[in-house]
Simulated scan of single mutants.
Amino acid sequence: MKKNALHNLTKRLTFVFFIALSLQMIAQENPNTENKSDFWSDVQFGGGIGLALGSGYSNISISPTAIFNVNQYVSVGAGLQYSFLKQSDFYSSHMYGGSVIALFNPIEEIQLSTELEQLRVNVDLEGSNSNSADFWNTGLFVGAGYRMDNITIGIRYNVLFNNDKNVYADALMPFVRVFF
């Protein structure tokens, strides 16, 4: 009976030893090789910063954007936007919101884009509270541009443009897009 008990104990100790050894091997595995996600290596950041100052006029804007490169042809992303405009003795305006964007590069030099933008617009006309306005402005842009590495220069068209209630002067707008 002692021989059988010793044999069972040896089996159990051998089993525990190999389990411990396996756990040790898993713990020693380099986490930077196989388990690391490549998500962040496919993300690019960019956007725009604007500053225009003149005689009684100020225009300050910031619009950070991030895109995820799905593959060499398609990228999707999102952005935020804030703008402040002021014309002394006439009006001041705050615009803020966000956008989603999809980019398609059929060939390396050409970039096609669609962008849905939603902005909250607050306009205060100086000396007249009745003419102040608060509204949402939605833009759906389709565009095309020439791409050189991380920079794209092109033109986009707002298919939802409305002359009566719009923050842009025209439906057709040039753009410069930079991502790092």
Score class of each variant (00 low, 15 high):
residue 106 P to D: 06
residue 39 F to Q: 09
residue 104 F to H: 05
residue 148 M to G: 00
residue 157 Y to D: 05
residue 83 S to F: 08
residue 122 N to F: 07
residue 8 N to Y: 13
residue 8 N to R: 13
residue 95 M to G: 02
residue 38 D to N: 11
residue 129 N to C: 03
residue 96 Y to D: 00
residue 56 G to M: 04
residue 121 V to M: 02
residue 119 L to M: 13
residue 143 G to V: 06
residue 66 A to M: 13
residue 4 N to E: 15
residue 150 N to R: 12
residue 93 S to M: 05
residue 149 D to W: 10
residue 78 A to F: 15
residue 64 P to A: 09
residue 44 Q to K: 14
residue 1 M to S: 12
residue 132 S to E: 12
residue 16 V to A: 01
residue 23 L to R: 02
residue 90 F to W: 04
residue 89 D to C: 01
residue 179 F to L: 06
residue 3 K to M: 13
residue 175 F to W: 02
residue 82 Y to K: 01
residue 97 G to F: 09
residue 72 Q to K: 15
residue 116 L to I: 08
residue 94 H to C: 07
residue 5 A to P: 06
residue 159 V to N: 08
residue 21 L to E: 10
residue 4 N to Y: 09
residue 60 I to Q: 02
residue 172 L to Q: 07
residue 145 G to C: 02
residue 18 F to H: 08
residue 75 S to C: 12
residue 82 Y to C: 06
residue 59 N to G: 01
residue 94 H to E: 15
residue 104 F to I: 13
residue 79 G to P: 09
residue 164 D to S: 13
residue 31 P to L: 03
residue 171 A to T: 13
residue 111 Q to H: 05
residue 46 G to Y: 04
residue 144 A to S: 14
residue 115 E to R: 07
residue 13 L to H: 10
residue 170 D to R: 02
residue 150 N to C: 04
residue 175 F to L: 06
residue 11 K to I: 04
residue 5 A to C: 06
residue 6 L to V: 09
residue 67 I to M: 12
residue 59 N to H: 08
residue 5 A to I: 13
residue 90 F to C: 05
residue 151 I to Y: 06
residue 139 G to K: 01
residue 33 T to R: 12
residue 136 W to V: 05
residue 133 A to F: 03
residue 20 A to Y: 07
residue 133 A to W: 01
residue 120 R to L: 11
residue 87 Q to W: 07
residue 26 I to M: 07
residue 179 F to T: 01
residue 145 G to S: 01
